[in-house]
Amino acid sequence: MAATWVVIVLLVAGLAFGLAGLGGALSAGPQQAATPAAATADASVRADPVSGLAWVELAALPPEASDTVDIIAAGPPYPYRADGETFSNREGLLPAQPEGYYREFTVETPGADDRGARRIVVGAGGEYYWTADHYDSFERIRR
């Protein structure tokens, strides 16, 4: 009888240990999942080391984004009153900087009857960020 209890305890302990390991794997998000070394190296190339945001090529963005970059380079006056205003980074998705470091610019959305949700945010250090969803997410623009 004692031997039966030992076997049961060992089985329960083994099952608990196995489920704990499996539960950890099931609850881990995709960014926590194990990846091959090549994929990890590739991901580090795609992320800006300062912000941790994915890089996006300017040429891969809608053509209106390139138009906005040209407008920024030309300087004021800008087409929209809010262009060139301070972007406060309240969402905390960009690297922390003092107030006034970031400026926002409208990227026109064809067919929209307002400014739309697309913006380019420019840092005082010359870095450019893209958001297509009104600051819910960002990518770092590689120009």
Rank of each mutant, 00 (worst) to 15 (best):
S66W: 00
R118H: 08
P36I: 11
D133E: 03
S44P: 03
V107A: 00
G75Q: 09
V56K: 10
E64D: 15
I141N: 09
N89S: 02
R140I: 02
D67K: 15
A47N: 12
R90G: 05
P30E: 15
W5R: 02
A82I: 10
A3H: 00
A96M: 07
E91V: 01
W5C: 04
A20G: 15
D136Q: 15
G125P: 03
G92E: 14
A3M: 11
A74M: 08
A41R: 06
G100S: 14
G14E: 00
T4Q: 07
G84K: 08
G14M: 03
A20I: 05
A37E: 09
R46E: 12
A124F: 09
E139H: 09
I72N: 05
L53Y: 07
A37H: 14
E99S: 12
P110L: 07
V9S: 09
Y102C: 06
E108Y: 15
P77N: 06
D133L: 05
G21R: 06
V122I: 10
R143M: 07
L11M: 09
A74Q: 11
G21N: 07
A124Q: 15
Q32K: 02
G125E: 14
L10E: 00
E99G: 01
P63I: 09
S27T: 14
R143D: 04
L93K: 14
G24Y: 08
P76T: 11
A117S: 09
R140M: 01
D83N: 09
E108T: 13
T109H: 05
R90F: 06
L11H: 00
T35G: 06
G75L: 05
A132C: 07
V7P: 01
Y128S: 14
G92R: 13
R115Q: 04
D70T: 13
L19N: 13
I141V: 08
S137Q: 04
T4D: 03
P77E: 08
R118T: 09
L15Y: 01
F138V: 01
V50I: 15
E104N: 02
S66M: 13
M1S: 10
D67V: 11
A60W: 02
R143A: 10
E85W: 13
Y129W: 06
E108S: 14
L10S: 12
V9G: 03
T109Q: 00
A59D: 05
G23H: 08
A3I: 08
V6M: 07
G126T: 10
T35V: 15
S27F: 10
T131R: 06
G18C: 03
E127Q: 14
G84D: 06
G23R: 01
A96S: 10
P62D: 00
I120C: 11
A43Q: 02
P76S: 10
A20Q: 13
G23D: 03
T106G: 05
T106F: 09
R143C: 07
V45H: 14
A59P: 00
D133V: 02
F105V: 12
T68A: 15
D48S: 08
L58T: 05
Y128V: 12
S66E: 00
G123D: 01
